[in-house]
Computed example of a mutant assay.
Amino acid sequence: MWGRFRRAGGKVADALRTEPRAEGENRPHNLFEAAAAYVTASAENDPERADEAAGWVSPEALSFGVNELACRAVIALARERGRSPEAVARELLGLPGA
């Protein structure tokens, strides 16, 4: 399941990237890159990488990016499973059906 989130986050970040990032390039990260890296690091239980990604953008921007990634992931999983986004979200969180 987390593999899907990582792939979705990577696709979102790649889609929003306007120029390829060269090795060692010091270009600022956008909020979706930060969110994808932060969520991936959190899912892989890597607090150092999560902290690094959290430092790329403001806390508000990171929160927005993580929220957007969560919404897109739930919608993608709902479509894939043929279920409602609410049912998928509740299932992911281990909540009983509504």
Rank of each mutant, 00 (worst) to 15 (best):
W2M: 08
R4E: 09
R6P: 00
R6W: 04
R6E: 10
R7I: 06
G10F: 02
G10T: 00
A13G: 03
D14P: 02
E19V: 14
E23G: 08
E23M: 12
E23I: 10
G24T: 06
E25R: 09
H29P: 03
L31W: 10
F32W: 14
E33R: 06
E33F: 05
A34Q: 10
A34I: 01
A34N: 04
A35K: 01
A35Q: 05
A35S: 09
A36R: 02
A37L: 14
A37E: 15
S42W: 04
A43G: 13
A43W: 03
E44L: 14
D46S: 14
D46W: 08
E48F: 12
R49N: 07
D51I: 06
E52S: 10
A54D: 01
G55P: 07
W56H: 05
S58I: 05
A61L: 14
A61E: 15
S63T: 15
F64N: 09
V66E: 01
E68L: 15
E68Q: 13
L69H: 08
L69P: 00
R72E: 08
V74Y: 02
I75K: 08
I75T: 11
L77D: 02
E80C: 05
R81I: 01
S84T: 15
S84M: 08
S84K: 09
P85W: 02
P85T: 04
P85M: 05
A87I: 03
A89H: 05
R90M: 06
R90T: 02
L92S: 07
L92A: 11
L93Y: 07
G94F: 08
L95H: 10
L95P: 01
L95R: 07
G97W: 07
